[in-house]
């Protein structure tokens, strides 16, 4: 039997009622291993205005490169109650921030290894279907150069939109989303 998948729709302007009761800002809370980091930034629309009604979801492996789900059959250890999942709305200035641990590397297609990264799922009023993008890390130059997904971005000028920039001397990264125009974030069809 083949069914047609239900059509997507926007979260609308009142997304907070439905999607913030189970929000998760502090992914690092349950981690016992790995470098604790903070990632923050802003979301901008095509006119450069902040988006105050977006919701971001994050999904990542633990410090050993293992996802906390039975769907990941790799022979690597789980880290206690660490889920690797985050969900946060943007504030009135389009800002978001969350704490986590830097993920380990996970396998890619064939025999490749992916650079450490976080999947980001983007929802907002005005968006009829969520978008997927990724956060890589600016201090992983060598791994990023060999990453099979970053390698799909032919325009080298767009790659920085996928890379969180580490603040000198701090375990903090800055990563913004731009929906359109100069520096438009790379989104993936997957």
């Amino acid at each position: 039997m083949t069914l047609m998948p239900t059509a997507s729709s926007t979260v609308g302007p009142y997304l907070h009622i439905g999607l913030t009761p189970l929000q998760v800002h502090d992914i690092a809370k349950d981690a016992s291993k790995g470098e604790k980091i903070v990632i923050s930034g802003r979301v901008f629309d095509g006119e450069g205005q902040p988006v105050p009604d977006a919701l971001l979801e994050f999904w990542q492996a633990n410090a050993d490169g293992k996802y906390a789900t039975p769907e990941d059959s790799q022979d690597k250890p789980l880290d206690g109650k660490f889920t690797g999942f985050g969900r946060i709305p943007t504030d009135k200035e389009g800002r978001y921030s969350f704490s986590t641990v830097k993920p380990g590397a996970v396998p890619g297609p064939g025999n490749t290894l992916q650079a450490p990264h976080i999947l980001v799922c983007v929802f907002m009023r005005g968006m009829l279907r969520h978008l997927y993008t990724r956060i890589y890390f600016s201090d992983e130059t060598a791994a990023n150069a060999n990453d099979p997904v970053l390698g799909l971005v032919e325009d080298a000028g767009r790659k920085p939109t996928l890379i969180g920039e580490r603040t000198a001397g701090k375990a903090e990264y800055r990563w913004d989303i731009r929906m359109q125009g100069e520096g438009e974030t790379v989104f993936f069809d997957c």
Binding site: E71, G108, M124, R158
Partner: peptide
């Protein structure tokens, strides 16, 4: 003003996307 102007980049579903 909230739809990407550039085409999405097609990518394979990796372990990251195939888990949740």
């Amino acid at each position: 003003k909230r739809a990407p102007n550039k085409p999405l980049i097609r990518m394979p579903q990796t372990l990251t996307e195939l888990t949740g």
